[in-house]
């Protein structure tokens, strides 16, 4: 069962990754060219039909996978990096800094990601892939930082840390040699779970027009533009919706499978 969820997750995410990479070198149609009739139904030539302007819809959904993964990977990397750094610092910090950081993180976690994204967009030149990554990454870093802080404190309370200090190991080396390897499994699973949320957050942002601008449209934006024609051409909503669902479901399965794999106690139970 554990292995099954890992495999389902790996396959769903794998398909998305392959499609995303494929769009870099090959596309069935030019995403901006009129290649068929307007709002055509799915056919062999156009697997997901065409949109209002007669552009191939499957091509756009494929590009959407690339955007979704780019934002999610970028946000996860940014959030993981900032979160881990802050969390480890907070675990080491004196009470004052620790409390201030904890309060900031709580506020950040309570703050809606969408609002944060609007602030980031307002503060920069306008919505782009970068602002989406930044906004989602910051929101994610708060959750990771809180987790890392607790995990680090728990590791630091272990005797082997005191023993290592007593044998003359400095704090920097202790973090690298003992702390990071011991918190890594849990943090990686948390990041993997956040990864799924990042994909949804990206879709929500671009649905509201705060994500990557066209023509490199993400699924959120496809959903939004297909909204007005949902009764004439339901495929316009179904295709990006299914793609989004498959990717998020795949990521969550993969994260669950990873957790079982990395946590031997849970796996044995």
């Amino acid at each position: 069962m554990k292995k099954t969820s890992l495999w389902i997750g790996a396959i769903l995410v794998g398909i998305n990754v392959v499609i995303a990479l494929l769009t870099l070198v090959w596309l069935p149609y030019d995403p901006t060219a009129m290649s068929g009739g307007r709002l055509a139904a799915p056919s062999w030539a156009h697997w997901a039909g065409t949109d209002r302007l007669g552009r191939d819809y499957f091509t756009q959904v494929m590009i959407g996978a690339r955007i979704a993964l780019t934002v999610a990977v970028g946000a996860a990397a940014l959030g993981g990096l900032i979160g881990t750094t802050l969390g480890v610092l907070a675990a080491f910090a004196q009470r004052g800094f620790d409390d201030a950081l904890a309060a900031t993180l709580d506020i950040l976690i309570a703050f809606p990601t969408l609002l944060l994204a609007m602030l980031v967009v307002a503060a920069s030149d306008g919505a782009s892939l970068g602002t989406a990554i930044l906004a989602i990454g910051i929101a994610m870093s708060a959750i990771i930082a809180r987790l890392v802080r607790i995990l680090t404190k728990r590791v630091l309370a272990q005797d082997y840390i005191t023993a290592a200090r007593c044998s003359g190991l400095g704090w920097g080396r202790i973090v690298l040699v003992h702390v990071l390897p011991n918190i890594a499994p849990t943090v990686l699973v948390a990041i993997a779970l956040q990864f799924g949320l990042a994909v949804i957050a990206e879709a929500s942002l671009s649905y509201l027009g705060l994500g990557a601008p066209p023509p490199n449209a993400s699924w959120g934006q496809l959903l939004q533009s297909a909204q007005s024609t949902v009764f004439n051409a339901p495929i316009g909503v179904i295709a990006p919706g299914l793609a989004l669902m498959a990717l998020v479901l795949g990521i969550n399965f993969l994260a669950d499978g990873l957790r079982d794999l990395l946590d031997p106690e849970r796996g044995a139970a």
């Binding site: 005797d159 005191t162 023993a163 200090r165 007593c166 044998s167 003359g168």
Partner: peptide, 12 residues
Amino acid sequence: VPLRGPVAAVVF
């Protein structure tokens, strides 16, 4: 740090 190890070590 330099005192620990060469001078004193701990067993828990």
